[in-house]
Structures are given as C-alpha cells and as structure tokens.
Design a protein around this nucleic acid. Structure first.
Lengths: 350, 350
DNA sequence: CTGAAAGCGCTTACAG
DNA sequence: CTGAAAGCGCTTACAG
C-alpha cells in the first residue's frame, strides 16, 4: 500500500543504497542530480519511511516515553505539553501514558514501553520501590525522574525544592501577620508532601507556633479526588471550635475545595480566613478570590527533563545528572494581611 | 542487550517458530510442556518482544494515533484520558499529539503518524480543508473525527449536537426570565461555534428578541487565550450603556474570564448579571459562583471515538459510521432566575 | 559517488 | 504438534 524504497529506487533508476542514503538524510555523499531524482520519485509516490523497519535495522529508537500520574491534573498536563514540544523539537516522537497512581498499571506500562524500545523514559511516580527501580533499570535506557523524586533514588532527575516551598508558604503567612495557622493535607504518602510539610513545620516551630497542632490531615484521602480532600479539610476546620486565620493547603485543587466549602459554611475567604495553595495551576488566577499560591514550574520541568533525557541518549553516563527548581511565591487574593491596623480597617469596611 | 527469541529458543531447546507461537499468544497449537519451557526461558531471560520487528513482519500496527488541538484545555485532556484507557484496553498503544490549532504542525504530525504506521487516527481539527482531507485519506487508515466535525466532512465521526446545545442555552436563559441577553464569543472560525450560535440565535429570534443585537464578538480573539477572550467580552459589556441581565459565553474558560472581569468592574455574578458557560470543564463546580453550563460529554466522546476506530481497523467499511452526543444542562449558581418577585426579594436582601 | 549483500527480530506459510 | 526457511522495509559495512 505504502510505497517502499524498492519502488522509489525503481522509479528513480538507482539503487536501494542510494535511495536510503538520500531519504534518511544520511551524511553519506550523493551526487546532487541523483539526489534530486530520488527526492522527486519519492514525492511522486507519496513515499513515507516505515519507522518500524528503520528502528529495527538501525537499532536506533525514535521514541521517548513519558509516564505521569494523571493527565487531568493541570500541573501534569502543562508538564506534558512542554515535554511534547521538546521531544518533537529534538526529532523524537512521544509515547505518553498516565498511571493513575496505580502500581499495577504503572508496571504494565513499563513493560509496554520496554517492548516499543523507547530511547528514554521520563517518569513521575509516587509508587517507587525496589521492584519499580529494577524494572526501570532493566529497560536499559536512560530514565529521568521529575516532579516526584523518590527518597533514596540515585539516578537522573529534574526536581523541585518542596522543602523550600514549605518554608516559603509558612514564612509568607507569618509575614502577613498570621499565627493561628492550619496545614491541610492528606496522608503524607509521597516524598514531595513530606518535604513540603517538613519545611512548613520547621518555620512554624522556629516562630514558636506548634506545628503539631497545625496539621489537619484527612486520613482516607488517598482514594479521594484532590478537590474532595479539600472539602474534607474544610469540614474538619468547621467542626473545630476556633477557626485559624490562615490555612495552607497541600495543592491548588484541594485549596479550591477548601475555599468552596468554607464559603458554603459562611466563612469568607480571605476576610475570615486566608487560604494558600500550592502548584500554581493555570486556573488559580481565574477564580474569585484568585489563589495565592506557590509556583512549581511545570513547563520548565517538562522541558528540562526532556533535554536531560535527550542528552543522555547519546552517552548513558553513569554519574547522576540533576536539576532542581525553586519555588516562586504568587501573591494574589486568597491570602490577606492581618494585624491590628488591617483588622480595624476591615471592621469598619465590612 | 534485550533477549531475542533466538536466545529463548536456545535456552528452551526448541525452535524459533515454536517460541514465536507461544510468546505471541498465537492460536496455533503448542504442546503444554513445550509452552511451559518456553515461557520459563523467556522469563528467565527477561525477554520483551521487539514491537518494531513484530509490526514490520506481521504488517499489523500496535498504535492508535490521536491529535487534539490542545492538551491544556481540560475538555481535551478529559477526552484524551478516556482515549488512553480505551486504547490500552483494546490492546493498542497510543501516540497522542496536540496541534495547537497550527495547520503546519498538524500537517507535520500527520506525516509522522504516517511513518509510524498507526492502525487508526483519532482527530479533532479546526483546520479542515481539502489538503488535510487528502492527507488523511492518503494515510490509508481509518480516521475518526470527534468534537469538531468539519462541514462537508463525510467520513466517520463522533459528534456533538452544538446546534441543540445553543438552543438549550437560550431556552434556559429565557425560561429563567431573561430577555436582555448577550452572546459572548470570538470569531466564528469553526463549525462547532457557528452551530452553537445558530441554535442560540434561532431561539432568541423565535422569542422575539433580536439575536443580531445579542452578539458580542471579539474580533482578534483567534490569537487569544480563551480566558482573555472572556475578559475582552466583559470589557465590551462594561463599555456599553446598558448591561444585559444574562450573557451566554462560548465556553467555560471564557466564561471564567467574563465573571472575573465583571466582578472587578463591580458587577456581581449572578445578582447583577447571569453568566452561562459551555463545556462543563471539571473546574466549573469548584468556583464561586459555580458555573451553570452545558455539558459536552468528554469521556464518552473519547471512549466512543476509540471504539469506533478499533472496530474500523478490522474492516475499513466504506459507509460513514457516526455517533452524535446530546447536550445536558448543568444548573449551578452563575445563572439566576429573574422576574418581578425575585427582583423584589433581592432588593430587600442585598 | 554508487551498488550488492547481509541482517535487524520477528511471523507465518509450508512441509512434515 | 514441530521446525526450516522466506521475508517484512530498511541501513550499513564493504567493495568498487
């Protein structure tokens, strides 16, 4: 059905070798006239290279594979878009999958990726363990972790300083006059969340605020949607006697759940309580109140991870390559400054 | 590096043919004992089939390709997730790309997809023309359009009744007591938008409301982000002398822009003006006010398009297969009922 | 600069 | 039920 180089060779009156050389953009010298004849014949026949044959014979893969926990999470879909662009720009094709945080599926996807002989793997996984690591090593291709960097992982990665982000969130809240602060989250089931919490609590404790009392952790949140987790956090807050003046939430989507539930409960954000998110999803600035949050650079992460992977395809290089991004505070409306003066102003204004 | 069937054959003391039969799950009869030996040898060697070789030899593709306008749009990322699941469940692998509405890129992606010998193509494109159509036909594989069905397109598709959706939006607004209605949009550069508008205007005209006056179309919106388009729509509304009581917006993200800009301008949604979206993105219910909108079933579209494509791989079948989904009204907070009684109530309550 | 030939890893008629 | 052999479409030493 599709034309092959055999037909192109016949039509252009030259050999398979020559046709292959011009059609695969080989550096091998070919007479200009011959080249032109081949190109014209290929065009006339609508020739399209068979990538399976190419990969098989040349032992070079044209694919880069990527696995993210979810495509519906706006953070990851931004990362994936950047990966897609960069992969294409590097002359590769992309095979991307989402694991839904399901270790079984993740493992199956890795097998599939092994079968398609990808040249490199980009992965963000929350289910890291020895089995996963061995499986990835057995792929025999460069793997770059991003976003979630498992504790004890010693390979290539593009990370983010979650600890610093946690510190930044707490410092900001304190600098805005808050001392009665809650920290809303689910179980600390991934390294990123543990680090964020650690940074956050560290600052609270340094300021003489009990971090143990701050934590509002929803036990069954592992199986919930982030938003529902946020709702549950707000429920818990509403059940308590005293409301804090500020609550930092483990991610933006959960923060939206907190805000919505609080408002339904008659608690205004940010006037009654400030809410701080984390991630900087693209919808944060669209809401009312717009979300004050901490930016984890999604695009940059995707781009960097891809570049690193591509550079590793050439030479596997045994030493661990890595890059760490730092948090940026995004000040918007959902956190407000409190203190004597502001409090007065508000009591007059409201 | 990776074990091949040659090594598995050697290790299990049988022939290539037999190994291939068991490892490819062929229906061909193989002695149970032999089968077991082969499976064990394969496992011991960590054998993973080389899919390039398999595709090349068997002339069967393991890939289904998908092109969407954008991965960052939550509607499409939901569609894509459903496609991913269904593709994997059908035993295929997925190659998905986003075209960014860029005809050049789209065309390049189609060439790439031709090279990787995908078994089928799923595509949502706003840049349909003869060149695109020929290019897709030349691929020689079943193609299923979804979401955007170009006018005059005569192939397989999974569509949505945008005309009915437009009617539904207008009817709902009118039934809620609105007669001073605006319709916010960009240029009508795609069939879906034209149809939505046509349905909407039809109902307005039937009710004796001038649809021509209703339309607030942002000229340069082709190059804007949807949200910015919404902001521009609200700007235009604010510039006018009289505010309508309701505005229907061409999609949810633009509706968020409208709401935000209106609120900044001191116009409360829904008390001063009702805003109606379209798409039912997953964030609509998270906002305040939550978004009243019309649901275009994203998951169902992705799943159905994939099933259709898979069924077409077996037999190309010349007659056009299609499925059309119908709109569902999602009533939330951003549209409120108006009329004598409600108006009074509000003037007392505010 | 050109071409004949081997072979990538697999599947599948064909013969037994 | 088993195996020897051809060949998918290409690339790439090798020889000229």
């Amino acid at each position: 059905m599709n034309a092959t180089i055999v037909e192109v060779a016949r039509k252009s009156g030259t050999s398979l070798s020559t046709v292959s050389r011009v059609l695969s953009n080989s550096a091998y010298p070919v007479n200009e006239k011959t080249r032109k004849r081949v190109v014209e014949a290929a065009e006339a026949l609508g020739y399209r290279p068979n990538s399976a044959a190419r990969m098989l014979r040349s032992r070079r893969s044209m694919y880069i594979a990527a696995i993210v926990p979810s495509l519906n999470n706006p953070f990851y879909s931004t990362v994936i878009s950047a990966i897609e662009q960069e992969v294409l720009a590097s002359g590769y094709m992309l095979q991307m999958y989402s694991s839904n945080n399901d270790p079984e599926l993740e493992s199956r996807l890795l097998d599939l990726i092994g079968s398609v002989q990808a040249a490199a793997l980009l992965i963000s996984s929350m289910n890291w363990n020895e089995k996963l690591e061995r499986k990835i090593r057995d792929l025999g291709i460069p793997a770059v972790f991003f976003d979630q960097i498992p504790e004890g992982y010693s390979g290539h990665y593009v990370g983010f300083d979650f600890h610093e982000a946690g510190r930044m969130a707490a410092e900001f809240l304190i600098s805005e006059g808050h001392r009665d602060i809650a920290f809303g989250c689910g179980p600390f089931d991934r390294e990123s969340r543990r680090q964020y919490r650690n940074g956050f609590c560290e600052v609270l404790d340094e300021a003489g605020i009990s971090s143990a009392d701050a934590i509002v952790s929803i036990a069954g949140a592992g199986s919930m949607h982030e938003y529902e987790m946020g709702v549950a956090i707000a429920d818990e807050l509403l059940r308590r006697k005293g409301m804090p003046t500020a609550v930092a939430v483990i991610n933006d989507i959960a923060a939206l759940g907190v805000i919505k539930r609080l408002e339904i409960g008659g608690v205004n954000v940010p006037f009654d309580v400030s809410v701080m998110g984390f991630d900087d999803i693209p919808y944060g600035f669209m809401m009312t109140p717009s979300l004050t949050t901490i930016r984890q650079p999604a695009e940059e992460t995707g781009r960097m991870a891809t570049r690193l992977a591509v550079s590793l395809i050439g030479d596997p290089g045994s030493e661990c390559m890595n890059e760490i991004f730092h948090p940026v505070l995004i000040r918007r409306e959902s956190v407000r400054r409190i203190g004597r003066i502001e409090r007065k102003e508000n009591s007059y204004n409201d």
